[in-house]
Structure formats: C-alpha cells, structure tokens
C-alpha cells in the first residue's frame, strides 16, 4: 500500500489520434504529484481515465493496489479544468446534491458543508444562486465540492487558473492541510511556479508519451550542471576576470544585486569541488555572492520537451 495510484501502460486513441501512448506513472501515497506537460500532451485524458470518465483502450489503473472499480468514485475528488456549477441552483442545495452523488448521506454532507462554510466564512451564501456569486466565490464552492466527501485521492486540473492570489493561497494552504491529513494529491498543470512550491514527485507528458518521472529533488540533481553563480568585488575587474577564465569554465551571469560586482557563472568539472572554487575566489577577491545554480522545474520542463 505504498502507492496511491499506479497506471500500467495506459493507451487511448481517439480515431487516428493517439492521446496516450503506454503511459505508466506511479503516485506514492501521501505525496503531492505534479502531472506536467504542455497543452494537448494528454494530461486531461489520463485524468479522465483515472476518474472513469473515459475507458482506456489498453493498460490498467490501480488505486490502492486494486484495479479501478466503480466504487472507487467516492475515493476520488476531481476539480476539472473546465469547471462550472448549475447557475440557477442554490449553493447549499447544489453542494449537497453533488456530495450525495459521491455517496455521502444528506445529513453527513450537510454537517460537513456547514463546517466548510464556517471555515471560509461564507455561511450567508447557502441560499444564493451560483449566478449571483463572483467567479472567485464560485471557485471556493467548487473547491468545497471537490473535497467534501474526504477522498483519498485528489486530482486538480490547473487548480490555480482563474484564482486571485488571495484565494489561490487559501486553496494552497488547504491542499497542504489535506496532505497532512493523509490524502494524496495529483496536480495537472503547465504552470511551474506551483510545481516548484508544492510537488514532491512529477511526471512529464509530452505528445502522448511520458518522458520523465521521479522525485523532483532527484530530477533536479540529475539535471544540475555543477554551475555556481558568484559575485565578486575587486579593484581590477578585467584582470580578475582573465585569471578566473584561465582556470575555470566561466561565463557572464545575470542577477540583481545591490553592489557593483563582477557577476559570473562558473561551471566546475567532476573533479573540482565547490570548496576549491570558493578558496580560489576568496584568495583573489571579496566574495559577496555564492550560489549553486539548481535547475528550476521550468528549465527542466522546457529542456526535456525540446529534447524530445
């Protein structure tokens, strides 16, 4: 029971178009998993298969080590990218209806809903129609709908699109809280800032294939180039530059700083350690900036997609 969700070579074709080509991913229990990929890579199709909205042509999906069954619906909470609610239905009625479809009893749903309404301080919305709410307000309701039945697996497709920063933060905190409580979370997105911030594991889809998967830290380690960003203050900049260039593979760096310093990116060879570099630099100039360049998720994303 280490993995919350496993897909084994899942394929899906729509006519002549291949949406997914033998995609296997493993989502560890209790993790926040980033399902990344450019638009049209197959993220939504994979999510729909996990939600049993579409059936795969081949391959299998395991939820908690069991093949996906119709009763698993109540264990999954799904916030689709294309989302909306019945415009003319009242907020309270609507959430209760959707919760009942997920298998909650009416009384239980009502109790939990009251709790959420209190938490978000929106108690007076109960009898409002969705069309009377602002977009941000409707999205809060949408979030409640997704999590009300306390699913073991939560799937968010582009969760922050359309949220203002305050709501986005609120939702982010809630997501982290849900993870604390034991839920596993899948994020499908092409916005890398949130990935960097939240995800433990990622899988990258590109043109229907999975091209990368693993722990974000491991991947970053794998992609790092042993490059250090340094800022040096000295009297003779030109000479210093020449000295360094002679010994290391260096190139001008760009970053913001308060000093008028010499900014360089220095790439080390396998045999060289960061301490050697630091020692060399301190003996030649005043070091005011020293930072290992770790590839961002965005860099990895762009680089991998380009290479494929």
């Amino acid at each position: 029971m280490k993995n919350a969700l496993v897909t084994n070579s899942v394929s899906k074709n729509f006519g002549n178009f291949t949406a997914l080509n033998k995609v296997s991913i493993t989502v560890p229990k209790g993790s926040i998993f980033g399902l990344l990929g450019p638009n049209g890579a197959g993220k939504t199709t994979l999510i729909r298969i996990i939600n049993q909205i579409t059936m795969p042509d081949s391959g299998s999906v395991l939820l908690d080590d069991e093949p996906l069954q119709s009763y698993h619906i109540k264990d999954i909470g799904y916030l689709p990218e294309e989302r909306g609610l019945y415009k003319t239905m009242k907020v309270g009625e609507q959430v209760l209806y959707l919760a009942q479809l997920k298998g909650l009893s009416k009384a239980e749903a009502k109790k939990r809903l009251e709790h959420w309404f209190e938490k978000f301080e929106i108690g007076d919305w109960w009898n409002k129609k969705i069309q009377e709410l602002s977009k941000g307000m409707a999205q809060k309701i949408q979030f409640i709908v997704t999590v009300l039945h306390q699913p073991k697996l939560l799937i968010f497709d582009e969760p922050f699109s359309g949220f203002d920063p305050i709501n986005a933060n609120l939702i982010k905190d809630e997501i982290l809280q849900l993870r604390e409580e034991g839920a596993t979370i899948i994020f499908a997105t092409h916005r890398m800032e949130s990935v960097e911030e939240l995800c433990d594991d990622i899988a990258l889809l590109h043109e229907s294939n999975k091209i990368l998967e693993g722990k974000l830290v491991d991947i970053k380690r794998q992609y790092k180039t042993n490059t250090f960003e340094v800022g040096l203050v000295t009297d003779n900049e030109a000479q210093l530059k020449q000295t360094i260039m002679a010994k290391f593979d260096a190139s001008p760096a760009v970053y913001r700083s308060l000093n008028n310093d010499l900014k360089l990116n220095i790439k080390l060879k396998e045999s060289e350690s960061s301490n050697d570099l630091l020692a060399f630099l301190t003996s030649n100039a005043q070091v005011i900036h020293f930072n290992e360049l770790v590839p961002t998720a965005n860099d990895i994303f762009i680089q991998t997609v380009k290479n494929n």
Binding site: N51, Y78, P80, L98, L101
Partner: peptide, 17 residues
Amino acid sequence: IEEKTSRIIEIIISSVK
C-alpha cells in the same frame, strides 16, 4: 446544453455514468 455550457458536466460524470 445547459450542463455543457455551464461546464458542470465533467464534475457530474466523474461521479455518475
């Protein structure tokens, strides 16, 4: 059509067939 245009459809069919 209303369910389609209000985009609630995907939420519903993730719960029911």
